[in-house]
């Protein structure tokens, strides 16, 4: 089930970057606990890098969705990362109350609200984007601190993307190429073999090996990794 949904998301992400509406899954994705744990020590550059890689794009996209310009989004994202780094040492992970996903979303909401508050409506003569109105409206509502459906979806998409990136940087590129062409873009094995002028057996091997890698990486990213599952 998970594998199928992963496959589906992957296909979407690889072929089309436009967002499609999709029901968010009920599944709470546990953020990798070990990463969070390591982030408590801000000196740990590798953890920071990993964390940054994992969530930077997600946060940027969400911020843009919330109506921020690219430059503003970059600024706010920086603030969010600094904030996370500052708060993490005192952050107690209590999955029953709040998952990392929710927690991150709340921080993001705060930051966005703060950004708009600080700037004020039309400050510096800059017009708010058209969809900023409902955002500002929701900001006053305490329920808005609960993650909305797009966030859930983005979070999920981000994990799939991260999975794929990791696999891309591990797998034999030839197999990865065959896998993408055959499994992701939905060509037949025979067609793939024709295009890449390779035995069909090669394609099968590629499907098997890269498929395994993807499953492994996906499981790794989603595992609670020592924390209780969210």
């Amino acid at each position: 089930m998970c594998q199928i949904s992963l496959q589906h998301t992957m296909e979407r992400l690889m072929n089309d970057d436009t967002q499609t509406d999709r029901e968010p899954t009920d599944e709470l994705l546990p953020t990798r606990a070990s990463l969070l744990a390591r982030l408590r020590d801000v000196q740990d550059d590798a953890s920071w890098h990993e964390f940054f890689e994992l969530y930077h794009r997600l946060i940027l996209r969400t911020l843009v969705r919330k109506g921020l310009s690219a430059a503003d989004a970059e600024d706010v994202a920086q603030e969010i990362f600094v904030g996370v780094a500052r708060r993490l040492p005192t952050f107690e992970y209590r999955p029953a109350q709040c998952s990392f996903k929710t927690w991150l979303f709340r921080i993001l909401q705060y930051r966005v609200a703060e950004f708009y508050r600080r700037r004020g409506r039309g400050a510096r003569g800059q017009e708010l984007p058209g969809d900023a109105e409902p955002i500002l409206a929701t900001l006053a509502d305490p329920d808005s601190l609960e993650p909305d459906a797009p966030w859930e979806r983005e979070f999920e998409d981000n994990l799939v993307r991260a999975t794929l990136e990791r696999v891309r940087r591990q797998a034999n590129p030839r197999y990865f190429q065959l896998y993408c062409y055959c499994a992701v873009e939905g060509h037949s094995v025979a067609e793939t073999a024709r295009i890449f002028q390779t035995p069909a057996n090669d394609v099968s091997v590629a499907l098997q090996r890269v498929g395994k890698l993807i499953a492994k990486e996906s499981a790794r990213l989603r595992s609670a990794d020592g924390w209780p599952g969210g």
Binding site: M14, P173, R174, E185, E191
Partner: peptide, 10 residues
Amino acid sequence: RCPQVPAGIA
């Protein structure tokens, strides 16, 4: 996107 191939290759 490396090493994915573009759709036009077909």
